[in-house]
């Protein structure tokens, strides 16, 4: 019986030699039904072409490093099974909406700046001394923000967002979801520090609710919901007389 094989079309781009990205085809063995797209890239890197560049780390959907466009859809390549595509070829491209550094490696600096701008950590007006014990929360208080805390910064939501693709000044889905995660945390007191970033025109108001960010999220986070709820919150703070109080 002939060996089962699959074609991988991967983006190649060498900034020192190529004017623009191109696709290169690799025909590799598809020997194991549990193979994922990342396994295919690793096979190519190890056995066919060691110059292929891409990011990956944990291989278990936790680190968020291996996000790429798989047949035009943003996916974590460690959880995109080849069996779902075979016998068709698989086209692997860098995440949309970001500048390309090399092959499948995108420049994520813009996202890192945006992430830092919303201060994704617990801000206290006055720190509680360690000796005072834990800052306890009820289950209901945790449920308020839990889903937004699942974000792994994989940037699939940015790749799926045409608003960000057209205007990369837009704060974007993941950064807003993480801002909401901290704003909803009963231990946090940093809302007023985050609001100037969230409420500006390139913040949540740039979003026109395409909703694809929530569709592609591999962790079940709903960034579109975070953005719309933040719009409502900022409006209420502006409209209601008591809105600006802490």
């Amino acid at each position: 019986m002939p060996e089962k094989r699959i074609s991988i079309h991967a983006t190649r781009y060498d900034p020192e030699h190529d004017k623009e990205p191109r696709l290169q085809t690799y025909d590799i063995p598809f020997s194991d039904e549990s193979m994922v797209v990342l396994d295919a890239l690793n096979y190519i890197k190890s056995h066919v072409d060691g110059s292929l560049s891409y990011r990956w780390s944990c291989r278990m959907g936790i680190c968020g490093s291996c996000g790429m466009m798989v047949n035009g859809t943003p996916k974590l390549t460690c959880s995109a099974f080849l069996r779902d595509y075979w016998p068709r070829a698989v086209v692997v491209q860098p995440l949309n909406n970001f500048p390309l550094i090399r092959d499948l490696v995108i420049d994520m600096d813009d996202f890192m700046h945006k992430l830092k701008s919303i201060k994704p950590w617990i801000i206290r007006k006055q720190e509680i001394p360690l000796g005072a014990g834990e800052h306890r929360q009820t289950s209901d208080q945790i449920d308020e923000f839990r889903q937004f805390s699942e974000c792994i910064n994989c940037m699939l939501c940015y790749a799926a967002c045409p608003v960000y693709g057209l205007n990369n000044e837009f704060l974007g889905p993941a950064a807003t979801a993480l801002a909401r995660r901290y704003n909803l945390d009963s231990r946090d007191e940093g809302l007023k520090q985050r609001l100037p970033v969230l409420a500006e025109s390139e913040g949540v108001w740039e979003c026109s609710f395409v909703g694809e960010c929530s569709v592609v999220c591999p962790k079940g986070v709903d960034p579109a919901k975070a953005i719309q709820q933040t719009k409502l919150d900022t409006t209420m703070r502006f409209v209601l007389p008591y809105g600006n109080r802490e």
Binding site: Y13, P15, E16, E20, P21, N96, N97, F98, P99, L100, I101, D107, D109, D110, G165, N168
Partner: peptide, 12 residues
């Protein structure tokens, strides 16, 4: 995105 890209990057 072109403005933000360094010369060796391929802009989106």
């Amino acid at each position: 995105s072109e403005a933000n890209a360094t010369p060796r990057e391929y802009p989106w």
